[in-house]
Simulated assay, not measured.
Amino acid sequence: MTLDPPVEPMLAQAVESVPGPGVLGELAFEQKFGGYRALLFTPTAPDGKLLLQTRRGSLIQDRFPDLVAAADKLPAGLVLDGELVVWDTKAGRLSFEGLQHRSAARGRSARGLAASLPAFFIAFDILQQDGHELTGYPYRQRRLRLEALFAGHRLATPWTVCPMTTDLIKAQQWLESWTDISGVEGIVVKAMNQPYRPGHRGWYKLRRRNTTEAIIGAITGILIRPQLLLLGRRDAEGHLRPIGRTAPLRAEMARLVGGNVTAADTGHPWEGRRFASAWGSRDTLEVTLVHPELVAEISADTALDRGGVFRHPVRFKRLRLDVTVEEVPLFSVDPS
């Protein structure tokens, strides 16, 4: 049997440190890129076309005509798992904002954007080859097949293999140095003997995190027991700009913030603004605006959305009652 879309991808769970080899056996470490997860299917029939499937099962190959045009370099009956990224030719870097533009464009617009925002597919797994399903094979064998595929077919741009190492020291160096590069978020840890289990969170991901400060501009929950903090920073003109929100507060942290935060008067800079409940969601949060006078110390990863907003919830570490809002770093497209 061959794999046909939609195929549920295997997933990773966030961790704070590398799991010990005694738990998983020999480990592999891959660089984690901040793009869109995608599965790639090459046709088995001569008149077929390349298919690109999102993590949620949607087909989006019409938005990436440059990848479709390059599909003749790929063999038939192939299924790859990987990450879609976009290169901003003007800025000279990977661009998540550019990827968002590409994923929303179709037709002539999609073809036009392909020139200035070319797409790349970073493959990190092979699920099918020559029409033969490989999901039951251990990662070690799948990785060897993936590398042999790229070498044997001399695959190049826009197809590339995700960097991988079994050296923990090298992986730690990636985490500390490569995450300074725009588009690289951290590492993914996999067991060498693992089969590919669709929908199962059997991998682990570590993101580099930076400690910084932000202003508390709003909360969810009630004033004495906030659940989430909505954070901002002032721009060069003094306007308070949203930069993200925290993960749910632990009970002791909620009591601490609740004992210091106060409801805002009229004229708050965020009056009338709506806040999404999650990245990419249309659902909104019910928030209470507060006096933007408290400073929070936060821990955040390096993934940024367009406009300098943290893509993932940040972690609240403590209140900085010794720091004024004037001492908080100014808003920029790189809030870290």
Rank of each mutant, 00 (worst) to 15 (best):
R225H: 13
R234W: 03
L230G: 00
L304M: 14
A251Q: 14
E297V: 13
L229N: 02
A254I: 08
V257S: 07
G244F: 10
L289I: 06
P242E: 07
V295T: 00
H239W: 08
R318T: 11
R320H: 06
I224C: 08
T246D: 12
G259R: 08
V295Q: 02
S299I: 01
A296L: 09
R274M: 09
P269D: 10
V314W: 00
I222H: 07
V325L: 00
L319R: 11
A264E: 03
T302G: 01
A276L: 09
L230K: 02
M253T: 06
A300K: 03
G258F: 08
G307L: 07
T302F: 00
P226D: 02
F310N: 00
I222Q: 12
R255T: 13
E297Y: 08
A300Y: 07
I243V: 15
L289Q: 04
H239T: 13
R311I: 04
V314R: 01
G308Y: 04
D301P: 02
L304V: 15
R241E: 12
V323E: 01
P313A: 11
R282F: 11
T262R: 15
G244N: 08
V309F: 04
G267L: 11
P269V: 07
A303I: 04
E297R: 14
W270V: 04
R225L: 10
T266M: 09
P248V: 10
T266R: 14
P242G: 07
E237T: 12
G238L: 06
G238M: 11
D265V: 01
R282N: 15
P226T: 02
L289N: 05
I224K: 12
V323M: 12
G307V: 10
V257G: 05
A254C: 13
V323T: 14
I298P: 01
L223W: 09
E271Y: 07
H291R: 15
L256D: 00
V323N: 02
R306F: 09
A251M: 10
R233N: 05
G259Y: 05
A236I: 14
E293S: 14
L249H: 05
D322I: 04
H312D: 15
R315G: 02
F310A: 01
E237V: 03
G307I: 06
L304R: 09
G259D: 11
P242I: 09
V290N: 09
L285M: 11
P269A: 10
I222G: 01
G307F: 09
M253V: 04
T284V: 15
G232Y: 10
E293H: 11
V323H: 02
T246E: 10
E252G: 06
I224F: 10
F316W: 05
A254G: 13
T246S: 15
D283Q: 14
L319M: 14
L319V: 09
L321Q: 14
F275W: 14
I222W: 03
I243G: 00
L228P: 03
